[in-house]
Amino acid sequence: MAIKVLVVDDSSFFRRRVSEIVSKDPDLEVIGTAVNGAEAVKLAEQLKPQVITMDIEMPVMDGITAVRQIMAKCPTPILMFSSLTHDGAQATLDALEAGALDFLPKRFEDIATNKDDAILLLQQRIKALGRRRIYRPIAPRPAPVSPSTRPNMTGAVAGREVVQPVRPSLRSQTPHRASGKKYKILLIGTSTGGPVALQRILTKLPASYPHPILLIQHMPAAFTPAFAARLNGLCAINVKEAENGDQLRAGCAYLAPGGMQMMLERSGAYGRIKIIAGSADMNYKPCVDITFASASKLVGGDALAVILTGMGADGREGARMLKNMGATIWAQDEASCVVYGMPQAVTAAGISSKSLALDDMAEAILTESARG
């Protein structure tokens, strides 16, 4: 049975274009279109689509407000279309916090250099979201960390850790027990659903977290500065977009810049970051495999690497290299993933030693770090 799609955009041209692309795939069916957010909320309740594509800027009611109302009334997987600008990045992150699951650039030439590839990617994203049977909206955004409570770049504690609001969750039945292994670094790779997943984990880490953290999130170059700044405002640890030459420090998370590749080189206690241009033949910029592989050469087995929700298999080969050096690899479990692609790849290959629910991940990381 075809996945039912509702297309929402105030532009008649864009509604028609998206509808045509969706309808070309026999596994997808457009069951309605809406010209603004208010109409989208009504049609979502009436038509019960399995996926909604949503514009951000619309008259009567904008896309972000519509997402909030749809998630409150009839939770549905939503794919946002966004401009690749600073304002577009901020709005898209707001939409993801409101409950949208994924986003794509509104200009198809920004999705892929080849038109057919762009069409295929859009169809694949919609089908991946349409396979989600249940979606639980996220809890309200935690309060930002004030400058007086922020740690310095050495990871020293200054003030109290952020307290997370109570929220519904899928948790593992068996609590995690520390392996006793020592670590020098935490690595996290993710894609679709990653922005919300990373926020869920990182906001639970205290300012005194004892290791540097490398974050590889598939995201356009225009988005990573805004995403890093947003996480930095919410977390007790420091979060920044990685820059070439950054010395790794405990209690700081470094987000790989979009369109580039993040590697490590030997320097100081933990090493330093090397940022290089992403080659044209690479599917992912940044790429989890590249960062993980680089880390395996620098820290060997003294790493904890986590693969979170995302399409495809990026991270599998880099995780394999880390595991061969003795590192510990975890994957997010299927039930809590937006898309069980990347975690499934490392799990099916026998690379990950543990599958954890998203809401258990931070606690398990802290338990491991207490021994490391």
Rank of each mutant, 00 (worst) to 15 (best):
L264Y: 02
L93C: 12
R132M: 14
S296A: 14
A357S: 14
F81V: 02
S355H: 06
E29N: 15
T85P: 09
K48M: 03
A143F: 10
A72R: 15
G32P: 02
M58E: 03
G194Q: 01
V60C: 10
G233W: 00
G310E: 00
D55M: 04
I31L: 07
T224H: 12
V157F: 12
P343Q: 09
A229M: 12
W330N: 02
N114E: 14
V306K: 00
D360C: 09
I185V: 15
K4S: 10
D10Y: 06
Q90R: 14
I64D: 10
M361D: 01
P343C: 04
T328L: 15
V51H: 04
D25A: 15
K184M: 11
T203F: 01
D55G: 12
K182N: 04
Y284V: 00
F81D: 08
R131S: 10
I275E: 03
I290A: 09
R171A: 12
E317I: 12
G312E: 02
K48A: 04
A128M: 09
E241L: 10
M325D: 09
I126Q: 05
I64P: 11
V51F: 09
T309Q: 00
S279A: 11
D25L: 07
Y284L: 05
T65D: 15
G130V: 08
V162A: 14
S12Q: 13
D314Y: 01
F103K: 10
E109T: 12
F108Y: 09
M325N: 14
H218L: 04
G310W: 04
P206M: 03
V339Y: 05
E29P: 04
D116G: 02
Q173L: 13
G99M: 06
G194P: 02
P26D: 15
R266I: 07
N324D: 14
K354E: 14
A95H: 12
T224V: 13
I126A: 07
S19I: 09
L6N: 03
R132D: 02
G155R: 06
P286G: 00
S82P: 11
L356Y: 10
A305N: 00
S169K: 14
L129F: 01
D117N: 11
C252F: 02
T53F: 00
I70V: 11
L186A: 02
T53S: 07
A139T: 08
G130S: 10
K181V: 07
V166H: 13
R230E: 09
M260K: 14
L122H: 07
A2Q: 05
R249T: 12
I276D: 05
I307L: 07
T53C: 03
G341A: 01
L231V: 06
P75N: 09
P195I: 13
A89G: 14
V22E: 06
R249Q: 13
D333S: 05
P206A: 06
R131D: 09
L122N: 06
V288W: 01
F227K: 13
V67K: 08
V7W: 08
A295P: 04
I273A: 00
V239H: 02
Y209T: 06
A98Q: 13
T367N: 01
P142M: 09
A295G: 05
G251P: 10
L104T: 07
V51P: 00
I237Y: 05
I213T: 09
I351P: 00
L84R: 09
V157G: 05
M260N: 01
R272N: 05
Y340S: 00
E243V: 13
K106Q: 11
P75M: 07
E243S: 14
P175V: 08
S82K: 05
S12H: 12
L122G: 03
D102L: 03
T113G: 08
T347F: 03
